[in-house]
Design a protein around this nucleic acid. Sequence first.
DNA 1: CTTGTTTTACCGAACGATCGGTTTTATGTC
DNA 2: GACATAAAACCGATCGTTCGGTAAAACAAG
Lengths: 202, 202
Amino acid sequence: MARPQTIEEQELVGRLSRVFRDIGYEGASLAMLAAATGLKKASLYHRFPHGKQQMAEQVLAAALSWYATNILSPLAGQGSPAERIAMVVKNLDAFYASGRQACLLNMLASPHTDNGPFAAAIKRAFEALIKAFMALAREAGHAPAESRARAERAVMLLHGSLVMCRGLRSSKPFRVFLAALPGELLAEPRSSRNRKIAIGHA
Amino acid sequence: MARPQTIEEQELVGRLSRVFRDIGYEGASLAMLAAATGLKKASLYHRFPHGKQQMAEQVLAAALSWYATNILSPLAGQGSPAERIAMVVKNLDAFYASGRQACLLNMLASPHTDNGPFAAAIKRAFEALIKAFMALAREAGHAPAESRARAERAVMLLHGSLVMCRGLRSSKPFRVFLAALPGELLAEPRSSRNRKIAIGHA
DNA sequence: CTTGTTTTACCGAACGATCGGTTTTATGTC
DNA sequence: GACATAAAACCGATCGTTCGGTAAAACAAG
């Protein structure tokens, strides 16, 4: 009907995402967000009438949607567990830019002392990932309790590796995690430890 | 000489620490820090002439000092590796309030996009913890590469469990981590997985 | 093809509030 | 009185947010 947007929603949310993932919700100022998107502050308010919080909400929603499509869905899809986890490893590597990009679930977790506006979505996201990992471990032949433990451990390693990457300013921990992930979920308990099983060239 | 302080340095830094660990560096305002300590802003500036950054620096320094005394030192101390790790588990549980308190290394890691004023100290802290864990694994009979991998995994699990605790608003992941830590560092690779080995009653 | 209207996207400027930080005055102990 | 601490008042800057108005494309009537 009228004047076209100078930047489409997808690209816009993507650029906002980068800022929030880099410096968190409180740390991201409207000035930074405007600079990162090329729009002025007032224009950002035209696109997101509810302001900064809505921006973060849509960024989080987009990330969760991407996660559902590229991580959760492949985990529950077809193919052998090994094939599926290989696909997920590839997509995780892309999503976290090989460990150079932090996770929104960590960067948005604190805003207002306790449970901010994102707390519910964040909790659901953690639970969904654990559940998906657990289902894969179950399918690989592990008992329910064992599968849940492996899934929770995998999520711990994921987020821990990302925290370490930021602290050490190195992408190595995340790459180590990716290489170990298939073994974490699938390998037999008594086999040799989970190395050289994964893709390995990442 | 003259009028005594109404709150001693130790208690003061401790209360500041709580705020920074709860909502991060950017999220912590002088008003919150003043409210948490009982001092007015100007009085805080009397105690910390360089302002908020100095507060965070001293909070971080105090935490690292506590860590050196209660975590790193026991790891390198005397007694069997199992005894030492049990002591460390107990102190970690106290330091992180059973998972209810986040880690400063995570909450202070982002401030100014990349390497802020705490980046160097944070990196050193990660490396020191890895090194200490690695030394214990070595002492338990593991090869150097294997020991380093186990140490890095343990640090990943530590921080990942803390992130999960905040996201899920539950202390369970951290307790699971503590229970698994001794096995992560010490257990034989081919033995049954590391459960029921640890303290277990935490 | 014009021309005017509508509709939407964008932006400059300013809002009140709060930020981190400073100066000034009062308080309490020696 | 001497002097270190604490508190009140204040500062410029920036925060997130709002508003009035402009720029640009689609549509309708001539």
